[in-house]
Computed example of a mutant assay.
Amino acid sequence: MKKSVITLLAILAVVAIIVISAIGTYNGLVTMDENVSGQWANVETQYQRRADLIPNLVNTVKGYATHEKETLEGVIQARSQATQIKVDAADLTPEKLAEYQKAQGAVTQALGKLLAITENYPELKANQNFLELQAQLEGTENRINVARKNFNDAAQAYNVGIRRFPKSIFASAFGFEKRAYFEAAEGSEQAPEVKF
């Protein structure tokens, strides 16, 4: 009888270890998944900050550069299109992330054109409101880069976690799927051409 009790206790101990390990693995995957979602929220927050600055910047430039209507409208249109694209962190497919990134890239290009035309307006470049908005926008672009890097780091840690054994067993059993990454913008592999 003592052998059967000891055997039963040993089996129960092994089962308890397996159950505790499975719970820890599952909770670790949930934590990594939530970290990716949190980092995605940070990315969206920084893009929203930029979108909030754009109307003020456009209005400031509009006062000085009234005949640059096409450029100003391009910025407003790009901002409008970018803010209409909503991506849920739980359903962040590579296609949806690429669409989001493309829309945000259009905003970046439009802002680049807007800031380039300001070179033609010395009074605008000296305007304190414009200088402050430009500094805020530059800071926001840096924050966007940091948020995107943090998101990619969290997505990488998560993706590695769900692919490693034995977590891969739990990940597939409980529906944890690979997360997409931000990638370099199309055409960024080519250096810009400089002409004098």
Score class of each variant (00 low, 15 high):
residue 63 G to K: 04
residue 96 K to D: 10
residue 75 V to T: 01
residue 86 K to M: 07
residue 84 Q to S: 15
residue 94 P to Q: 12
residue 83 T to N: 11
residue 77 Q to V: 03
residue 83 T to S: 14
residue 97 L to H: 07
residue 96 K to S: 11
residue 92 L to H: 05
residue 88 D to F: 03
residue 73 E to T: 14
residue 90 A to Q: 15
residue 70 E to C: 03
residue 85 I to S: 05
residue 91 D to H: 14
residue 64 Y to T: 03
residue 79 R to P: 04
residue 84 Q to F: 02
residue 67 H to N: 12
residue 66 T to K: 15
residue 92 L to Y: 05
residue 89 A to C: 07
residue 79 R to D: 02
residue 80 S to M: 03
residue 79 R to V: 05
residue 95 E to H: 03
residue 74 G to Q: 13
residue 75 V to Y: 01
residue 81 Q to S: 11
residue 66 T to M: 09
residue 77 Q to E: 13
residue 90 A to P: 09
residue 92 L to V: 12
residue 88 D to M: 06
residue 73 E to V: 10
residue 95 E to A: 12
residue 72 L to A: 11
residue 83 T to Q: 13
residue 71 T to N: 10
residue 69 K to E: 14
residue 97 L to C: 11
residue 77 Q to K: 15
residue 70 E to L: 06
residue 81 Q to I: 00
residue 67 H to Y: 11
residue 88 D to G: 05
residue 83 T to P: 03
residue 65 A to G: 13
residue 96 K to G: 08
residue 78 A to F: 01
residue 94 P to K: 08
residue 88 D to T: 10
residue 86 K to P: 08
residue 81 Q to Y: 00
residue 91 D to M: 11
residue 80 S to N: 13
residue 93 T to Q: 07
residue 65 A to W: 03
residue 89 A to L: 06
residue 82 A to P: 00
residue 75 V to E: 00
residue 78 A to L: 02
residue 75 V to H: 01
residue 66 T to F: 02
residue 93 T to P: 11
residue 84 Q to A: 14
residue 91 D to N: 15
residue 71 T to C: 12
residue 77 Q to C: 02
residue 73 E to F: 05
residue 72 L to Y: 07
residue 65 A to C: 13
residue 93 T to G: 07
residue 66 T to G: 12
residue 62 K to P: 13
residue 64 Y to R: 05
residue 69 K to L: 08
residue 87 V to T: 12
residue 85 I to W: 01
residue 74 G to V: 04
residue 97 L to Y: 07
residue 67 H to W: 01
residue 63 G to L: 05
residue 97 L to E: 09
residue 68 E to G: 11
residue 88 D to W: 01
residue 79 R to G: 04
residue 72 L to H: 10
residue 71 T to R: 09
residue 93 T to F: 09
residue 85 I to C: 04
residue 66 T to C: 06
residue 86 K to W: 02
residue 74 G to I: 03
residue 70 E to A: 13
residue 93 T to R: 02
residue 63 G to R: 02
residue 67 H to C: 02
residue 64 Y to Q: 06
residue 67 H to D: 08
residue 71 T to V: 15
residue 94 P to N: 11
residue 91 D to P: 10
residue 65 A to E: 09
residue 86 K to D: 13
residue 79 R to M: 05
residue 70 E to P: 10
residue 84 Q to R: 09
residue 94 P to T: 09
residue 81 Q to H: 02
residue 95 E to P: 04
residue 80 S to P: 03
residue 68 E to P: 14
residue 82 A to V: 01
residue 82 A to D: 00
residue 76 I to W: 00
residue 80 S to A: 14
residue 63 G to C: 05
residue 70 E to W: 02
residue 91 D to C: 06
residue 71 T to P: 13
residue 74 G to Y: 07
residue 81 Q to G: 01
residue 82 A to G: 00
residue 68 E to Y: 07
residue 64 Y to M: 08
residue 94 P to H: 09
residue 76 I to E: 01
residue 88 D to L: 06
residue 76 I to H: 00
residue 96 K to I: 09
residue 71 T to G: 11
residue 71 T to L: 10
residue 97 L to F: 10
